[in-house]
Amino acid sequence: MTTGDTADTAGPATAQDTAVAAAEAAAAALPAVTPLTVGPAQPGSAHVADAFAGGAVAALDGVPGAIVVLIGEELVGALAGSPLGELDLSAAVQPALDAAARALGAHARTATTLDLTADGGLAAAVGGDFTTVPLIGAGIAAAVLVPQATLAGAKEPLRDEPAPAAEPEPAGLTDQPFVPAFGAAPGSLPPQRGLEMLHGVDMEVTVELGRTRMTVRDLLALTPGAVLELDRAAGSPADLLVNGRLVARGEVVVVDEDFGLRVTEIVDAAATA
């Protein structure tokens, strides 16, 4: 190199860099009260599951392997104790898996919930050696697990959606060992929080005009043009259900040639229990 030349010190991205990038994307999409930051990537161990209360896995399209996100008791408890009833863990974690997959140049398939108590459950999900990246809030809140085969086959991040901004890393975080942090004293765990834990969770919302009961014979006899009589008078309010639970009523309207619902009544949770 002659005088005046400038060396490129950045170098190619390593497998750990790729895992951290996927974890940063997942951290921005995972429900949490405290903003999550990414800790140092470490070689994975089956014992990592002992520090978490639940998890979800999604196979990838475009890149080999899968991605696993493990979550702590705080989010698992919030999902189980939601005022709308128990919410699906895999659906809550799906946006984080989608974001991590895009950072690897892939698309995540539909997530499934992991049984962390089953022998070999985590090993079967990752399918071999993997890298673990902790997500840190008020303690170790979650972790992203990426198989080595997935890191080896990773591509350029997909740009069809904006990449989530990475949170700044706390000073001195990279000097902290990952595994000992899981062994924090029980008294140091953050207190349980409420509904704000669920702000980032996607839920299925359905508007129901009415219902009817039919015999199988009548159902099979349906043809185009058949009219079904519902158990609700014309002009009656429609029901708004969230994950199958009635939460409000309203009147059906048309918005830009699409149907909509103008909410006229919020249903008391005690009345629907």
Rank of each mutant, 00 (worst) to 15 (best):
P177H: 06
S188R: 10
F182M: 11
T174Y: 01
A165Q: 12
A184G: 15
F178C: 09
A184V: 15
A165G: 08
Q176L: 14
G172C: 06
A185P: 06
D175M: 04
P186M: 12
V179W: 04
F178N: 05
A184Y: 15
G183R: 05
F182V: 02
E169L: 09
D160K: 00
P168D: 05
P168K: 00
A166L: 09
A185H: 08
L173C: 04
E167A: 13
E161K: 07
P186E: 13
P164I: 10
P162T: 05
G172A: 01
E161I: 05
R159T: 12
Q176W: 04
P164N: 02
P177C: 06
P177T: 12
D160N: 03
A185T: 14
P186D: 13
P186S: 08
D160G: 01
E161N: 01
R159P: 00
E167V: 13
G183N: 13
S188T: 14
V179N: 02
Q176D: 05
V179L: 15
L158N: 00
P164A: 12
V179A: 11
P180K: 06
E161C: 03
A184N: 12
A181S: 14
E169W: 04
L158K: 01
E167I: 11
T174Q: 05
A165P: 02
L189M: 14
F182Y: 04
D160T: 02
G172Q: 01
P162G: 04
D160C: 02
P162E: 13
A171Q: 06
A185F: 05
T174K: 03
L158H: 00
F182C: 03
L189Q: 12
L158I: 02
R159Y: 05
T174A: 11
P164L: 08
R159G: 09
P162V: 06
G183L: 11
A163M: 07
P170L: 10
P164Q: 04
D175L: 04
P162S: 04
A185R: 08
P170Q: 03
D175Y: 01
D175A: 09
A184F: 07
F182H: 10
L158C: 02
